[in-house]
Design a protein around this nucleic acid. Structure first.
Lengths: 221, 221
DNA sequence: GTAATTTATGAAAGTTTTGTGAAATATAAG
DNA sequence: CTTATATTTCACAAAACTTTCATAAATTAC
């Protein structure tokens, strides 16, 4: 779990960082909106704690910008308890809203709650850059365009995703995807790999060949 | 949208009711946990606003009981701002937590946010372009012209609509629409799909076949 | 550098799954 | 009881998918 803490006050950042690290989360920090946007572009976060009142670029503008880059759950902090802000915040799709001064313990509880809510989605849909696999809808999209996979190709990709970065032998793949009662040729796997690669287009090289062993779905986190 | 307001103070209930009705929500009220549980058993609600401090049966016990009956999104209200309560609340899976005195506007914003997260097509009339299904009137229209569906076809479509973008297996469909006691052929589903598609005319391709699995009602949001 | 081994690929043959029309059966309405 | 309507089964056609296989390309071993 990686948390991005965005606040211009160092004191606040320190407190949040402390509590987060206590919880076992990784943390990263930004002092203002511009910096936050940069960080989001280059790293992956599971949640963002975003202060509204910041120099350079205010919270809501930052929020909108970040949303357009990556859809990361966000909890907004605000010094002003103006209701208008809260309403606007929720309207924009903020996941939770707290006013300063806040209780760090409550913040942690809300972080956990937000992560819990979003966890289900994450397990139901695999996503890596423009490649998405929706387990519920049984569909795969590349840059939001659905690609047509045959059942075997889909199952193959699904198994790869559930076993990313693991070298899988042809026997293993046959046993798991074709079933223990398949008595055909090993090389059948090769053909399906070929077709899956073709369908994956720009992502074809996520499937690495492991010579003398089999194949591997490689994702560098 | 139907909201169940559970609080022992009439004044509070009145305020929340006012705001909810302003928002166009239906409301129902309970004075204590016991009453709330009864109401949940007999009616369907989209969200529950639950006070913690109540006579007869306290909020958390009520919450647990209600959860075990139906899984309804819940926002907890509390007079005490004890942190322990909040932590416990989120641990139990409460959707949001507010302390009294609260701002009614913020409560409404949080209600909306919770409902948005739990967005179920709980509307009485489904509508997508020229295709409409009226759950109350049990009718389906295409471009305002009613189409005649048989009961099975209607139930099939209704189930698809309530499970849009979900790949459904024939077994699942048989179990849910035909009932667990149907022992006929899988392929019966195919025939009904065929007839439903024919009746859907220009919307026939909303029903996608998911090879080796079953069917899917696909609506691109 | 050459031979041996392993993987990639294209095309054809074979298999499975789904679409469909029609008949048989069941259910509801008059 | 008769008729109309709805549901189920089934067989065959059509479409989609899988497997095999021969050959090319790549990699490793000697």
């Amino acid at each position: 779990m990686k948390v991005l803490i965005v606040d211009d006050e160092e004191l606040i950042r320190n407190i949040i960082r402390e509590y987060c690290q206590n919880e076992g989360y990784m943390t990263d920090e930004a002092e203002n909106g511009i910096e936050a946007i940069e960080k989001v572009k280059t790293s992956d976060y599971d949640i963002i704690i975003l202060d509204l009142m910041m120099p350079k670029l205010d919270g809501y503008s930052s929020y909108r910008e970040i949303k357009s880059i990556k859809n990361i759950p966000t909890i907004v902090l605000s010094a002003r308890s103006e209701e208008a802000d809260k309403l606007l915040g929720f309207d924009l799709g903020v996941d939770d809203y707290m006013t300063k001064p806040f209780s760090p313990k409550e913040l942690m509880a809300r972080i956990k709650a937000v992560l819990k809510r979003n966890k289900k989605e994450e397990t139901d849909v695999f996503s890596y850059k423009g490649l998405k696999l929706d387990k519920i809808g049984h569909s795969v999209t590349i840059n939001d365009k659905e690609i047509a996979l045959t059942p075997k190709e889909y199952n193959l990709l699904l198994y790869f995703i559930d076993n990313k970065n693991v070298a899988l032998s042809r026997e293993q793949l046959l046993k798991k995807i074709w079933g223990f009662d398949f008595f055909g040729d090993d090389r059948t796997v090769d053909t399906h790999i070929k077709m899956l690669r073709n369908n994956l287009g720009e992502y074809r090289n996520l499937i690495k060949t492991v010579r003398a062993v089999g194949y591997k779905f490689e994702i560098k986190d």
